[in-house]
Every structure is written in structure tokens, then in C-alpha cells.
Write a protein that binds this DNA or RNA. Sequence first.
DNA 1: TTGTATGCGTTATCAC
DNA 2: GTGATAACGCATACAA
Lengths: 338, 338
Amino acid sequence: MPPTIKDIAKKAGVSVTTVSKALNNYQDIKPETRKKILKIARELNYQPNTTARNLVLRKTNTIGLIISGLSTSRSAHHFLFDVICGINDQAYGKQYDVLLYGTNSENQKRMSYLDLCLQRNFDGVILMGVKTDDPYVQEVVEAEIPTVLIDVPIVTSTCGYVTTDNVKGAEMAVQHLLDLGHRHILMINGHRQAFVSLQREEGYKKALEANGLPFREDYVAYTDFESDSGAQAVVSLLQKHLQATAIFCASDLIAYGVITKCMEMGYRVPEDISVIGFDGIQLGEIMTPALSTIYQNRYVMGTSAVNMLIEMLEGSEGYSRVLPPTLIQRDSTKAITN
Amino acid sequence: MPPTIKDIAKKAGVSVTTVSKALNNYQDIKPETRKKILKIARELNYQPNTTARNLVLRKTNTIGLIISGLSTSRSAHHFLFDVICGINDQAYGKQYDVLLYGTNSENQKRMSYLDLCLQRNFDGVILMGVKTDDPYVQEVVEAEIPTVLIDVPIVTSTCGYVTTDNVKGAEMAVQHLLDLGHRHILMINGHRQAFVSLQREEGYKKALEANGLPFREDYVAYTDFESDSGAQAVVSLLQKHLQATAIFCASDLIAYGVITKCMEMGYRVPEDISVIGFDGIQLGEIMTPALSTIYQNRYVMGTSAVNMLIEMLEGSEGYSRVLPPTLIQRDSTKAITN
DNA sequence: TTGTATGCGTTATCAC
DNA sequence: GTGATAACGCATACAA
């Protein structure tokens, strides 16, 4: 049994009230008493019981980090890990604990968002990985528990979100290809249940139209963000559109699958076809050819989310924080030659 | 304010005891009473307050996942993420929560292992990423808190560990090179403060000696497991040992750095020099040439750790679980030609 | 089968 | 300055 304030009180010959006050730096305690109490606490190696503390203070100082699709997605870690690091570091600095809770679309049906949060007594939560048609997307606004969403654009008095400017990022990617002279640019998107897919497609469209080019639906294919499905998608897309000279991929992993498959099919990248990705994960540097891509700062997404959540915990309303993407030019894109 | 058992009791016209018992499936409750109570609980959307529960039960059902070097290491996620997924999945299935706690060597000095665990009221902890000279390595055995270490060989009544058989894995890697005819095999190891480095070096040594070859200290260089330092280390090592035809690297990232640098220096891989890694991360498939390596099942390390911890929580003593590595042959190793 | 009383470790109120 | 005492929400020994 670890020592409690009661043990300290007994040993010091004072009441628990006095001990509690001394330990919590109240000013109405005689300096000598405080000193004595602190000394005994140190001797006993006293550590306050967080559970008891949480109960009476009605605050757990705990952030629920709810991640949908944590384990199910093979590719998740490339994106998630840095965000988690950012969250962890920032939470640590602000004296908050992080409870990791991995879930998926199925489990979301079994336990409601509100129930989950109520049971765990989260002060607030950071929610990521949810799809547009996941139950939690609706429930999060009704629950009225301070929540920061990653990459899901919802703002209410208790909900905010942080995301990269995906529209802008996609525009930059496509504009980069246009600047290189490409006119027939395909897009291999993620799945339609991801907000970022919609946004990146919008950016793709905007860039084309800003340059007087038509948006063609049949230029776009959908995948699950993984390399395998990217590879699969590119085959039929390229066969249907032999005039294409460039491909914008909604993730670096898609781009990897696409490039590999293109080479298999006899295309040279970037000589015959330029490919650009999205994310800026380490993989892109390592591939041959090194991948041109749009970088999003995942670590900052994490720290921003924690900061926003804490602001909300202190009374602020939800808002949005949209981070700027960056174009990274490497070897998978090249000016068109003819 | 969320509803409590008191609210239910009032509404049902019974005592809180009855409610508590009904909710916890005690058998000495009249079926109708139970039914009524459950109905009201559902109506109010009652969720038990975990904090209060933890306090009285003296059990938090929470596993502390303490990771040293979570953010500091650029390469961490390749290894860590899968372990975390395994831990999360298994803990979820066994009704345990996972509190993520990232730390580093510095912070370990500021707050002792015991204090950290006492404050958070962890039932048990899974500890990973610690170096041989980190404070927690000593403190973990004194703390007497059920702990499972990842890749740190300590067994006491309250400590166990899970690891890959690194000696065996290294032997397999080196034997693979020997089988291909290589006789001058360099090793680029991780840092000396990692247990796995010591073990992999031992395996390297054993394989050489089993084949009647001498172990030469000057054939081994040390790095921080990252690609950059691998690249750096290989330069001087190769210059000193021009007869070398193969390199065993203690991580896939080191191998990547090594291969890149070798090519820069004009070597062909694997024609002039064979390179094998350790870990089996996705990067290896993507590199050119695709990396031969030793695969360790990180997800199972995670699930095993949770299982072991729960056994210990139920009274079992600490033990060790050593998982088998697998050789993956790809394109970075080749039979010697001369 | 149900209720009363007590305690888990802490903080807060208020009297002394 | 200090100390009873109640309260946080829940579980349980024991009495009824």
C-alpha cells in the first residue's frame, strides 16, 4: 500500500486538511508546518493518488486519443505516427495524459462516442481516422464533449479541427504538373469516405479550371490509399487514357504503387509519365525515382490539436486550424518533351 | 452532470446498493427489480464512472505504455508502430485501457519509474525503448510493479520481457552471407546502449566462429540505427577493409544508408557488395535493390506483451518470451563471384 | 431480497 | 493557521 495523506498527517501530528493544503501550496500554512510535512512526504515517497484526485476535482487531465483504423490500415503509421508524437509531446508539456484508444467503423456501432467518453471521463478528445459515414462523425457534435478532429471539417461550440489545406495542396501538385507542360493529368484518389479525398479532388479540379482545362470525371480513380490498390487502379486508367502524361496521387503510397506498376508496364518515370504524391513520408525519399510530393506537417497537426483542445477546455469555442502544405520537387516529375 | 447510481436509485425507489448490485449482475436481486433498474439506466444513458470505480476497486484496468525515445528518434515509427497496434488490439480485447506515456533519458531522471507508476495508478506497464544505461532499467526491478519490457532482458517476480531472438536472427543473416560465399563480412551495428545491438553482435560473432572465421573487432562500427549514420559509418569501414564483400546491418534503415552511400562510392549492390538488414520494415521492399533482411514480428511482440502482463496481473511470475526471426531474401545479397 | 453504513484518497467548506 | 466534516461515485460487509 502506498502512503496517503493520512499517513503523513499521522506522522506529522496534523490533520489531513493541513497536509493537503501544504502539499498544494496553500498560503495559510505556517512555513515550519509545511516544511515538516514536505519532509515527511519525501521520506515516505508519497505520490498523490490521481484517481482520488480526479474523482473529487471532476477532471481527469486526460485526453482521449481515439483513432479509427489504427490497426486495420497497413499504411496508417506513415501518417499517424508523427501526429501521435506531436500530441504526446504537447500533452506532456501541458500536464495532460493521453489515453490511446484504437477503434474502427465496426466498434463505433457497438459503443457510442458519448458513452465511450463518459465512461473514461476524458476531459476532451482528439479524434482521427474517421470516415465520412462513420457513426462518430454525427455523434461527436451531439456529445458536447470538447473534441478536436483531425482532417474532419466540423466546427461547433465544442468541436474544432485541424487539417492541412488539402485543396491548396492538390492545387499546388497539379499546378506543378501544369507548369511542366502536362495537359492530360490523371488523378488516383483515396476512398470517397475520406474528407481529404474530396478536398484533394476539389483542388485538382480547381487547378485544371484555373488553367482553362476541363475536369473529366473519367480521369479520376478511387483507391484505399494503399500502394496495391494504386497499382491496380493505374492499369485501367492508363489504358483508357493513352494521352495522359502525368498522374496526381492522393497519397505517397498510392504513388509508389503507381510508379512500380507503370514501370512494369514499360513506362519510364518521369520520362514517359510524371507522378506526384501527397503526404511527404520518408518512403518518398527512398524510392527510385525519388518522389515529388506535397508535404504536410503531421507533427504540428498533433501539437496544434492539443493546443486547440486545451483552449477549448479552458472555455474557448471550437475553431479550425488549417496548416499550409509544401511542394517537394524530386525526381518523379519532369517537363514534358515532344 | 452525467447520471449516477444515486439518480437511478431515486428514480427506481430503491437504494444505491440495489442499483449497484443490479448493474453488476449480482444474483441476489429480484429479477423485476433488476429489470426496472436496467431500464432506467438505459433511459438515463447511465455510464459508470470509471474514476470512482477505480478508486474503490483499487484497480484501474489501465496499462501504462511507456516509450522512451518516442519522438526523438526519426526512425522509431518503423519499429514502434506495429508494436503499439498489437498492444492496443490485445488490450482492447482484454478490457484494458492503454495510457501512452512518451519519455526519454532526460525525463527519466526527473521522475522515477516508481513515482510515475504510483501517480498514474497503472495496474501494470509495458516499457520499451529504454537504453542499457537508462535509470528505468534499474528502477523497474525495484519498483515491484508488474512490468513487461520489450527488448530488455530482465526477469524477476514482477518483470518479464518479450523480444525477438536477436542472436539467432543475426546468425541467420550472417550465415546467409556465408552461404553465398562471403568471407569478409563487416557489421554496422546500432548503438552500444541497446540490448539488441549486443545480441546482434553476439550472433554475428557466433556465426563467424561456427564457420571457422575469426571475429575482428575492427570489422564492426556503431551507429544510432539511423540511415544517415549508417551511411557515414560505411565509408571509413570500407576504406579500411577493401577485402570486404558483404555487410550485415543491425537495422533496415542503416542498410538503406549503407546501400545509398555504397552506390555513391561506386560500388554496385549486390554485385560488388552484399548488404543485409534487420527488422523487415516496409522500406526494405521499396528500396532499390530490394533489401534482404531479418524480419521480426512486431505486432506479435505487442500482443505477447499484453498477454504476459495480464498473466502477471493475475498472479503469475515474470518470464521471457523470445520470438523467432525470419530470413527474407531479396535483391541486396548475392553469391560471391570471382 | 433489500438497505444501512463505511470506506477508497483526495479536496473544499467552514468553523474554531 | 488549523482541523472536523462532507463530498466526489461507487462497491461491499453486514444487518434487517
